[in-house]
């Protein structure tokens, strides 16, 4: 059924629209138009028109108020979600005494960039950014390389062991991170990988992999098997069909999964705390270091946190279209 067919024909009998055309609504002049059949039928037609017009205007008004309400709700939700980040951002521009004001203030009384120079000038900050990027990229690649074939196998072959595997993959998410963090740190040290981004990336992959497999499974489920069969008929191997046909279709889903895996690693703190030292310390640990036994440097901490969030915001904006496409991919099954 087309959109035109489902639309109410607001013009009614006097509108004279042909099927398939958008309905025409006559301008309301307040005067019944004169015509050749302006005899007995005229009052009835005018009355119908008026009733329809009122009905249409009522619907429009209803739509408008619903839309306004939705906008208000959306704005409230935006404020609610954005407030913590905005507060962090404003705090990063406050003077030291302003950051600890009692009662707290939202906007700085005096704007300063000193916190940024302090935070970025601190030794090890640049290195920690590079380490965070290295770790997050390696962890994301590892997650995708492992999750895509795993999810594909599970959804396409639908074996009992696959079902057990996908449930078992969640086990690492059910255990408190510290319970696996300490043994992992010991294992990495034994393997000679102590204090390296690779060790931390592997640890981060244990967090992001289960989620990646689940996400990718739902995306693969949404791809009709007919597509692959058609590709196979055209001479593609199973892997060829996966690479040439399925992967492009789920590229939005892969982007979503990559974003989640990247974020999980980029923001992770506990494993980084347990497994990194001089060479591979990541920025979340450096940010936490602004809280010491002697006090908390709110200004520098929030400045570094604000700078650290920029790459993630940019990445999300750049991949926005893919993310939206990916999010709706799993929702519509062919």
């Amino acid at each position: 059924m087309s959109i035109a067919e489902t639309r109410p024909t607001g013009g009614g009998t006097t509108g004279g629209n042909s099927a398939g055309e958008l309905p025409h609504r006559p301008r309301h002049t307040g005067v019944v138009p004169a015509g050749p059949n302006n005899g007995q039928e005229a009052p009835t037609t005018a009355g119908n028109n008026r009733r329809r017009r009122h009905h249409a205007e009522g619907l429009e008004a209803g739509k408008r108020s619903t839309r306004t309400l939705l906008w208000i709700l959306l704005a409230a939700a935006m404020v609610l979600y954005a407030f913590p980040f905005l507060y962090l951002l404003f705090t990063s521009f406050k003077t030291p005494i302003d950051t600890i004001a009692v009662p707290p203030t939202i906007l700085p009384r005096e704007w300063t960039l000193e916190n940024y120079t302090n935070a970025l000038g601190r030794s090890g900050v640049l290195a920690s950014f590079i380490n965070s990027a290295q770790t997050a990229i390696i962890s994301t690649l590892l997650s995708l390389v492992l999750a895509v074939p795993a999810a594909y196998g599970i959804t396409r072959y639908k074996t009992p062991s696959g079902r057990v595997f996908i449930m078992a993959a969640l086990v690492t998410r059910m255990v408190p991170p510290v319970a696996i963090g300490i043994p992992l740190a010991s294992m990495m040290a034994t393997a000679g990988l102590a204090d390296t981004p690779i060790a931390l990336s592997i640890a981060h992959t244990t967090i992001s992999l289960p989620l990646s497999i689940w996400l990718m499974s739902s995306f693969f489920e949404a791809v009709p098997q007919d597509l692959e069969e058609a590709a196979t008929v055209d001479g593609c191997s199973r892997l060829g069909a996966l690479w040439r046909v399925v992967i492009p279709v789920v590229s939005g889903g892969i982007a979503v999964t990559a974003i989640f895996a990247f974020l999980a690693s980029w923001n992770e703190f506990l494993f980084a705390l347990l497994m990194t030292a001089i060479r591979s310390q990541t920025t979340p640990v450096v940010i936490a270091n602004f809280q010491t036994q002697f006090g908390l440097d709110w200004g520098s901490m929030t400045a570094l946190a604000a700078v650290y969030s920029i790459p993630v915001i940019l990445l999300t904006l750049l991949l926005q279209r893919k993310i939206v496409a990916g999010m709706t991919l799993g929702a519509v099954k062919g």
Partner: peptide, 23 residues
Amino acid sequence: FVELPYDGLFNRLSSEFSSGTVS
């Protein structure tokens, strides 16, 4: 210097001392 926040330092020390390998 390896700097760690106070709350994490004890965990780190426990972890490394118990593993027998220290950084």
